[in-house]
Simulated scan of single mutants.
Amino acid sequence: MNLNNPELIKALDAIPTLRHAEAQLEAVTKLARGLSLVTPDEVRNAAVADMVRAVCDGAPYPKDAGERAQKAFEDAQAPYSEALAVLTAKRELEAHVKRLRIDENELALEALGESLADVLSQTRGVLPDLGSARTAEAAIAAGDKAAAAWRTLTALVARLRDVRAAQNDLLFSPRDSTNDHLHDDRRRTVKRLHDEGIGEVAGFRADNVPAEFLAVMQSRRYTVPYLVWLATIGTAHVPLTWEEIEEEAAMREAETAHDDNGPLVDLSPIVVPIPAAPEAKTYSHSRPAQLDYSAPAPPPIKPNAKPGDPAPLTYTY
């Protein structure tokens, strides 16, 4: 998150638990200044090293060497424990503050929605003075009121840019670590939809947005003409959850879906009666089957059909 963004800071102030956690973090951070985690073992070892160095330089070996090393160890325990507690609290509070900024972001996004509404309200207030001017040159040529309105709108464009940047940070700031690959995949999918322009205006459809403004939505490079258009249409909003963006995308796809299959066909099972077998065709050259050649031959078959040319096959056409 870009905590230098004034709109983001203002939005985060809407989370009461976050303000309390940040105050605690600030207090603990002051206590942590100048603290270092030097362990009692390190202090004792340093005291022993000093005594050994002195002996090597010619000093007599101290009779109370063990007591002096033990005293150094004991004296270091309290400062080390204090530093450990303060630095651990600072680290945990930093993680807690970061989690609150993500987990409680709906309150902040609601505050961002109010900031967006204020930007658009101020924009509509100066539109009568701006008139039909849509460039700085045209505003200057239109007179002092139009030029002043253009300067006001330029400042409001900067605010709009900060609001949308804060919206992106609050919706898509990654957590410290996660092994939830489904969550990560969904985050990437929703981020892609957001980058396509969904989340700027309610009921977004690319074919209903002028091409120049669609490019602004997708690039986030806001301009005065875009701000004027946004204030005029009256559907600009700040989505509070991923679900809102996904629902917008689903509605867009449902409206543009086409049925290429024609009317529905009933494919439920039906009972088809088996037709009676046709009478066998016999010809003048047909002979009855004789299964037993020791018996007299059966009488000739009375023909019921005449042989002719067979019907042509379709693949020989």
Rank of each mutant, 00 (worst) to 15 (best):
E212C: 11
A249F: 13
D195W: 01
E244K: 06
I270W: 10
E253H: 08
V201E: 02
D266E: 12
V228Q: 09
A249M: 03
P275I: 02
L267F: 13
D207T: 13
G203A: 11
E200A: 13
T232L: 04
E246N: 07
P210Y: 14
L264N: 15
P275A: 08
R192I: 12
N261Q: 13
F213W: 08
R205Y: 04
V238H: 00
D195M: 05
D260Q: 08
E243L: 11
V272E: 10
A249V: 07
F213Q: 13
L240H: 05
E243Y: 10
S268A: 11
R192D: 06
Y226R: 08
E196C: 07
P275D: 12
D195Q: 12
E247S: 08
R221C: 07
E255Q: 14
A231H: 03
I270D: 09
E212Y: 03
P225N: 08
E248P: 01
P273H: 02
S219C: 02
E243N: 14
A249E: 08
K191R: 07
R205A: 05
E243D: 14
A277W: 14
E200N: 15
A231W: 00
P273W: 02
A211S: 11
L264W: 10
E212D: 04
I245D: 00
P275F: 09
P225F: 11
D207Q: 12
G197Y: 01
A202M: 08
V271G: 02
M251T: 10
T235E: 06
F204Q: 05
A276R: 04
E247Q: 13
P269W: 04
F204N: 05
T235H: 07
V224M: 07
E255R: 15
L264Y: 11
A250K: 10
T256E: 13
R192T: 14
A215E: 05
L264V: 15
L230N: 03
V228N: 03
Q218V: 05
L264A: 15
S219Y: 10
D259Q: 12
A236K: 01
T223D: 05
D195N: 06
V271C: 02
N208M: 11
E200R: 15
A206D: 02
V190Y: 00
V190C: 04
P225D: 01
E255Y: 15
H237F: 08
G203W: 10
I198R: 06
W229Q: 10
K191D: 13
M251Q: 06
L264I: 14
K191Y: 11
H194I: 03
T256N: 09
E253L: 09
D266T: 04
E196R: 07
